[in-house]
Every structure is written in C-alpha cells, then in structure tokens.
Simulated scan of single mutants.
Amino acid sequence: MSDPSSRADHAPRPTSSGPGRVLIAVYAIFALSATARAAVQIATKFSEAPVAYLLSAFAGVVYILATIGLAGSGPGRRRLAWVAVGIELVGVLAVGTLTALDTADFPSDTVWSLYGRGYGFVPLVLPLVGLWWLRRTRGR
C-alpha cells in the first residue's frame, strides 16, 4: 500500500509558482500587445497586408491561450498551455522561415516575422522557455 503523503511529491507543481509568475507576465504582455497591434492593423489598413495582420491576430490568440493555461491550475489548463505553447513554437518557426525566404509575401511584419526580430527575438525564445517550464513543473 502506498503512503498518501508521497503522492504530493509526485503531483505537478503549479506553473504559476516561482519563476512561472514572470513567464506568465511576459505571456500576458505579448497577448495584450500582439492582439492590440493586430486589431489596430486590421481595423485601419487590412488591405495592405491581410496575411501578416491575420497572423498577428492569430499569434495574439495563441498568447492569450498560453497565458490562461499557464496561469491556471489543473490538468485541463496544463494541457491548454502545452498545446498553445507548442503551436506558438511551430508558428514562430514557420512564419520566421517564410518571412526569411520570401519577404514579398509579407510587406508588413508580424509578431513572428524573422523569428520575432522586431521584438528582440523574444517570440523565438519564449515558447522554448514555456515548454521547459511546463516540463520542469510536471509531476513525476
């Protein structure tokens, strides 16, 4: 029979604890900035670069979902965080590569253009840190 007190040692740590708070704050800032920037661009000059502006809006939604997932508790929120941060990594790599190879299709930058160059490459590093944190706080 297993000792009930040992189960707590195997439970996942909350992602919102310790350094996770800083990570959540960065995600929240990116959620707000990407979503607001995309909303203004879509409302004022959508015809200039619709793909870029829609990608920025998509990035904003991904950052919102990652923030919600990381800030919450429970297995559902953790799954949400894993999916959102995974999509973020695929998105920044795909959009970063596409914008590096063919700048003509992206006349205006997105959050993920050139791997987040316009944001100090934080969009490239952020999902790596997010996935590392999710792994580090998982249960044993």
Rank of each mutant, 00 (worst) to 15 (best):
S6V: 09
S6A: 13
R7F: 07
D9S: 12
D9G: 00
H10K: 12
A11F: 00
A11E: 13
A11T: 01
R13S: 03
R13K: 11
S16H: 15
S17M: 00
V22N: 00
I24L: 05
I24T: 04
Y27K: 09
A28M: 04
S33H: 05
S33W: 12
A34E: 08
A34Y: 10
A34M: 03
T35R: 08
R37L: 13
R37S: 13
A38W: 07
A39Y: 01
A39T: 15
A43N: 06
A43K: 01
T44M: 08
A49K: 11
V51D: 10
L54P: 01
L55H: 11
A57I: 01
A57E: 12
G60M: 09
G60V: 02
V62Q: 10
Y63Q: 03
Y63G: 06
I64Y: 03
L65G: 10
T67Q: 13
T67I: 04
G69M: 05
L70D: 02
A71K: 07
A71Y: 07
G72H: 02
G72T: 04
G72V: 00
G74N: 03
G74M: 03
G74D: 03
P75E: 11
P75A: 12
R77C: 12
R78T: 05
R78P: 09
R78F: 03
R79G: 03
L80R: 14
L80Y: 07
A81G: 02
W82H: 09
A84N: 07
A84R: 07
A84T: 10
G86T: 01
V90M: 12
V90K: 10
V92L: 12
V92W: 09
A94Q: 09
G96H: 10
T97D: 02
T97A: 15
T97E: 15
T99F: 11
T99K: 14
A100E: 13
A100Y: 11
A104N: 10
S108M: 12
S108D: 10
D109I: 00
S113D: 12
G116P: 05
G116A: 02
G118K: 00
G118F: 04
Y119N: 05
Y119C: 05
G120Q: 08
G120A: 09
V122Y: 08
L124Q: 07
L124C: 06
V125L: 15
L126E: 04
P127N: 11
L128Q: 09
V129C: 01
G130S: 14
G130Y: 03
G130L: 13
